[in-house]
Amino acid sequence: MLLIPCPWCGPRDESEFSYGGEAHIARPREPESLSDAEWADYQFMRTNPCGWHREQWLHAHGCRRWFNVERNTATYAIRAAYRLDEAPPHREDAL
């Protein structure tokens, strides 16, 4: 069970959280201008890396805040948690 460092509450058991999938996927500003393929890309396509992954978590049974986490999908290590209004702490090429 992961120990997730909520930026607001500190480290808490995974059982207090729910998972939100890959982070930094912005909803298109004008969905109706997108092709079906572009809309499908927003909806369904994810990077699914083996390694560092930026993802959304919700402290559902705590402060009820969404935030982002950098978690390694191979080792499950978590190296950072950051608020939605913060920039990712590691550069893209470190992922």
Partner: peptide, 13 residues
């Protein structure tokens, strides 16, 4: 409630 909160926090802060 969770649905509304999610959109407000992640997309429409």
């Amino acid at each position: 409630l969770a649905w509304l909160e999610r959109w407000l926090q992640t997309e429409w802060p």
